[in-house]
Amino acid sequence: MIRTILTYGSIAGLIVGIPLFAMAVVLAGRPPLPYGVALGYLIMLVALSTVFVAIKRRRDTALGGAIRFWPAFGMGLAISLVASLFYVVAWEAALTVTGMGFIDDYAKAAIAEQRAAGAGPEALARLSAEMEQFKADYADPLFRLPITLTEILPIGILVSLASAALLRNARFLPARPLPA
C-alpha cells in the first residue's frame, strides 16, 4: 500500500506542482490573474482526483470489491499529504527562481486594490505597515511553509472524505469483470 500511496501521491504532486511552478515563474512581476485562484484550485482538484482512482483501484483489485471508510480515508490522506509536499516544494522552488518577488507583487496589488476602492490615507498607511510586517514574516520558512501547506491540504482532506464515503459502498462503481 505504501507503493500505491507514493505512486499516486507523486502523480498528483506533479500534476499540481508543475503548473504552479510554471505559472509563478512566467507571471513573476505581473499582477495576479483575476481567475488565478480559481484556476489554481481547479488544478488541485484535478490532481487530487488521483485519490479517488487509487482508493477505487485498491478496493477493486486488492480487497475484492469492498473497503471500509477509515482505511480508504487514511489512504486518501496519505496520498494528499504526498501531493501537498510536492506542492510546497514547487512553491519554494518558484520563490527561489523568482527571488521571492511574489510577496512584493502581492503587497503592491493589495495596496493598489484598497487605493482604487477609495481607502483613506490612514487606512493605506495601516495596510502598508501590515504588508511590510507580512513580507518580513513571509521571509521566514517556518511561517511560509505552513501557509503554503494550508492552500492544498484542506482540499485533499475533502477529496479523501468524499472518496472514502462514496467508495465504501461496494455498489458504487463496482468492479467490472475482465472480458474472457
Results as ranks from 00 to 15, higher is better:
Ala12Tyr: 03
Leu63Thr: 12
Tyr8Pro: 06
Ala112Phe: 12
Gly36Met: 00
Ala170Ile: 11
Thr98Ser: 10
Ala66Leu: 14
Phe172Ile: 15
Phe69Glu: 02
Ala54Arg: 05
Ile11Met: 08
Pro154His: 01
Thr4Ser: 09
Ala28Glu: 05
Ile18Pro: 11
Val53Glu: 03
Leu124Met: 11
Ala93Lys: 01
Glu132Ile: 06
Tyr138Ile: 06
Pro154Ala: 00
Ile147Thr: 13
Ala117Gln: 07
Ala110Asn: 06
Ala180Ser: 15
Arg59Lys: 00
Ala112Arg: 12
Ser10Asp: 01
Leu63Ala: 10
Ile152Cys: 08
Phe172Ala: 10
Leu20Asn: 03
Leu33Ala: 06
Lys108Trp: 06
Ile157Asp: 07
Ala24Gln: 09
Asp105Arg: 00
Thr98Trp: 04
Leu45Asp: 01
Ile11Lys: 01
Lys56Asp: 04
Ile157Pro: 09
Ile55Ala: 05
Val51Lys: 11
Ala54Met: 12
Leu6Ile: 08
Pro71Val: 02
Pro177Trp: 14
Leu124Gln: 05
Val88Ser: 13
Asp105His: 00
Gly118Gln: 11
Ala164Met: 06
Thr98Gly: 12
Leu95Gln: 13
Ile67Ala: 07
Leu27Tyr: 11
Leu27Ile: 00
Leu85Gly: 12
Glu151Trp: 01
Ala119Thr: 03
Thr96Ser: 10
Glu151Ser: 12
Leu178Met: 07
Gly101Asn: 14
Arg57Pro: 12
Ala93Asp: 04
Gly17Glu: 09
Thr50Ser: 11
Ala119Val: 01
Ala123Asn: 10
Val25Ile: 13
Phe21Ser: 05
Ile157Gln: 01
Gln133Val: 07
Val159Asn: 00
Ser49Lys: 08
Val16Thr: 10
Met23Cys: 03
Val16Glu: 02
Ala180Leu: 04
Arg171Pro: 00
Gly29Val: 07
Ser84Thr: 13
Ala125Ser: 11
Ile5Ser: 04
Met44Trp: 08
Phe21Gly: 10
Pro141Thr: 02
Val26Asn: 02
Pro31Gln: 14
Gly29Asn: 07
Met100Asp: 13
Glu92Met: 15
Thr4Asp: 03
Ala117Asn: 08
Asp105Ser: 14
Met1Phe: 10
Ala93Asn: 12
Leu173Arg: 11
Phe73Gly: 08
Leu33Gly: 03
Leu45Tyr: 09
Met100Leu: 06
Ser160Arg: 02
Phe52Ala: 12
Ile15Pro: 00
Gly99Ser: 12
